[in-house]
Design a binder for these strands. Structure first.
Lengths: 223, 223
DNA sequence: ATATTCTAATAGTAATACTATTATTTTTGA
DNA sequence: TCAAAAATAATAGTATTACTATTAGAATAT
């Protein structure tokens, strides 16, 4: 089983790169170090020049993999959601009871992320911090509709649909499965942020576990 | 009564401006046209140069009111939450039943915004669109903690606390009043965004009313 | 061994996000 | 009413960003 999982690759929309970063050493370095750099200095301060320097190469090399830094952000966030989808499928596979399955899915979505050794070149904890702090910048743009048509947000939307389907399996009468599903996904991220920065308006001062709140929510909302 | 409401002013943290924009004609124009310009072209494309040109003045005049465009964004979002807080207080004042009060609060938070003639220089509909599309950029920065200490997000946090208090008044046993409160506020914004741009993952295809979903949520969650 | 692809280095550009200075207009209050 | 003070406008300048273009050298594949 473990053998089967070696060398896994998250499949990303090919329009998001000029050259597949998973196809070369330099590309993997760009991914891995790019993620670390953004998580350290934030997306606004991040430039390809700084990334080039960090990987002992230069700006133009990075430009040959990604069109610009916005696309790079969209790419790594797609990677993250693809990885989450994989985890979710894996963790819930084989669970028969629909509610139990949904609750497990919520845990996958809301629990603090741990490193995944199966993807050596990506630091998932750093990437998770990027998703918490920068993900909304990837779609809160004037170009959303066009980029949405290009399929830039497909993996994310597929994940929301999957959870929505699980909600439907628990209670087909429930009228807002999609809204609840995105409340779980985005609410979890937002609550992580609030816990870290605006702790005066959080319940669990100190350690953060939105999954309690969210699991309580669905069990009370669904029949 | 109506007389009393004339010439209302939303009080904003004085660290957010160099010169109070509500204190002069030019200042009000900067506010009003700045809001329209950001809602038209988006925050990334927005510059003080463009705003100066639009108000028939120039860049340097705008810089004398606001330190930079980020602070300008923080200012107008504070204005928005101050205005919402005012509406909320007004709309729920006098309602005795705690649940009824909370449901009214949710309506104020989640219903699509309409123009408020009491504040002639601000287009609240445009401002609401900015809050939906740009608000998270005001706090998703590397400087959040410092700016939070300066009180840049006080009005927002006070609003979340108010709703949290209302939740507590309905059901003092409920364990997550703050999480639920911010789920209402931020969830409403996010659902508006999804409805407009990612409608395949929404329930109410077409017209958007997150207040149904949210009101159903609290009535089922609270005893 | 050579063709092809990949990577590095350099240079250049338009725009951004400002700052500084000076000139002109408007407001005010004695 | 008139001078001083404050507010606004205009111009110029700067460091940085987010790229593009070109060229040359290194690695790899056939």
């Amino acid at each position: 089983m473990e053998e089967l999982l070696k060398d896994l690759k998250i499949r990303i929309n090919e329009d998001l790169f000029l050259k597949d970063p998973e196809s070369s050493k330099l590309g993997k370095k760009i991914l891995g170090e790019g993620i670390l750099l953004i998580s350290e200095i934030g997306f606004e301060e991040f430039t390809f020049k700084k990334l080039g320097k960090r990987i002992g190469s230069n700006e133009s090399s990075v430009y040959r993999y990604f069109k610009n830094k916005h696309i790079f952000l969209v790419y790594i966030i797609n990677w993250f959601w693809g990885w989450k989808e994989f985890q979710l499928t894996f963790a819930t596979h084989g669970i028969q009871d629909p509610l139990e399955k949904l609750l497990k899915a919520i845990e996958v979505m809301a629990h603090p992320v741990e490193e995944d050794i199966r993807f050596a070149h990506v630091n998932e904890v750093a990437l998770n911090n990027i998703v918490i702090n920068e993900a909304s910048k990837s779609y809160l743009t004037k170009e959303v509709d066009q980029e949405n048509q290009f399929g830039y947000f497909l993996i994310y939307k597929r994940l929301i649909s999957r959870i929505s389907k699980m909600i439907d399996d628990v209670d087909p009468e429930y009228a807002h499965p999609y809204s609840l599903s995105s409340t779980i996904a985005d609410g979890a991220l937002h609550l992580h942020f609030l816990n870290k920065h605006f702790s005066t308006i959080t319940d669990a001062k100190g350690k953060c576990d939105p999954s309690h709140f969210l699991k309580n929510m669905v069990t009370n909302l669904l029949k």
